[in-house]
Computed example of a mutant assay.
Amino acid sequence: MPDPNPAALDFLLSRRSRPAKTLRAPAPTREALQPLLQAAARSPDHGKLEPWRFVVIEAGAMPRLADLAEARARALELDESDIAKARAQFDQGVLAVAVIEVQKPSDKIPAIEQSYSAGAVCLALLNAALASGWGANWLSGRVSHDRTFCETGLGLAPHERVAGLIHIGTETTAPPERPRPDLDAITEWVSR
């Protein structure tokens, strides 16, 4: 018989991300963030490659990244609403952890499995933050895929990419409920 953990299952069945625009200071200190990063680093990692790393974006870096996001959006000739959106997560952010996918050469572990591992790290960090009582949200957006922004703003090497930006702070409003998938519509049972 399995040894159930009803509290953990209840948390997973009821968890909800907090909209990043509703997160405010205080954010976790470096000391408070350490166990969240440790929890995220325990994600599935076939071959023990550790195909990811963390870049912690503290409040002092947010204005610089907001300016860079705007400059890149203007260079790409985006419309004003997209420019505002590019800035917003950094203008409003108090702390974010960029989970960086770092592909490692491997004859045994395909690149896609390394990408899945980086995604698992994002979700584990999000859930660790929520379980610790913080508000958190996993964002990406155009800036996450803009090489100039990533290399200039976050110091990424050419072989690295952003898997997600996990914003963490104090929630200021209750998160909205949203529709959930219809399990019957997305589940197929194979018995033989």
Rank of each mutant, 00 (worst) to 15 (best):
R53M: 06
P63M: 07
V94S: 01
A157P: 04
V56L: 10
T22D: 12
T152Y: 01
L9Q: 13
L123Y: 13
V94L: 01
A174K: 15
A84P: 04
D45K: 08
A32T: 11
P110L: 14
I109N: 04
G141M: 11
Q92P: 02
L33R: 02
A88Y: 01
R87A: 05
A32V: 07
A86G: 06
L125M: 05
I83M: 07
A8C: 12
K104P: 04
D82C: 12
L165G: 01
P6Y: 07
G60N: 12
L123V: 14
A157C: 12
A131S: 13
Q34N: 08
E160R: 11
S43V: 05
S43A: 15
L65P: 01
C122V: 09
L123E: 11
Y116K: 15
R147A: 15
A128T: 01
S106P: 04
R147K: 15
V55P: 00
A69H: 00
R42S: 14
G141Y: 02
L36E: 02
S17F: 06
I186T: 13
T187G: 09
W134V: 04
S81R: 15
S191K: 12
M62A: 05
P28N: 10
T152D: 11
A71P: 02
K104Y: 05
K21M: 11
P44H: 06
A88G: 14
G119I: 09
S132G: 12
G93F: 03
D3M: 14
A120D: 03
R161T: 10
A96K: 00
S81T: 15
A129Q: 02
T22M: 05
P179V: 12
A163T: 08
A75W: 06
V121E: 02
A75G: 07
R161H: 07
R178Y: 07
K21S: 12
E70F: 05
L139N: 08
P175F: 09
P110E: 09
L126Y: 00
D3W: 11
A136R: 01
G60S: 12
T187D: 07
A88D: 05
P4D: 09
I100S: 02
R53L: 07
A163K: 03
L49Q: 07
A185V: 12
G119W: 10
I100Q: 04
T187K: 10
D82V: 06
P2L: 14
R72D: 00
L36V: 05
T170D: 06
D184T: 14
D79R: 15
A73I: 03
A84Q: 11
L165I: 08
D82P: 01
C150V: 09
A25N: 02
P19Y: 03
S132N: 13
R53Q: 07
R18T: 15
A157M: 13
T29F: 02
F149A: 05
L139C: 13
E80H: 08
H159C: 10
A96C: 06
I83T: 07
P158N: 10
L76T: 09
Q114S: 06
R147C: 06
P6H: 10
V143T: 13
A32W: 01
H46I: 09
V102W: 02
I168Q: 00
E171W: 13
P105R: 15
E58W: 14
L33D: 01
G169N: 01
Q38R: 15
Q34D: 10
S144P: 05
A69I: 00
A71K: 09
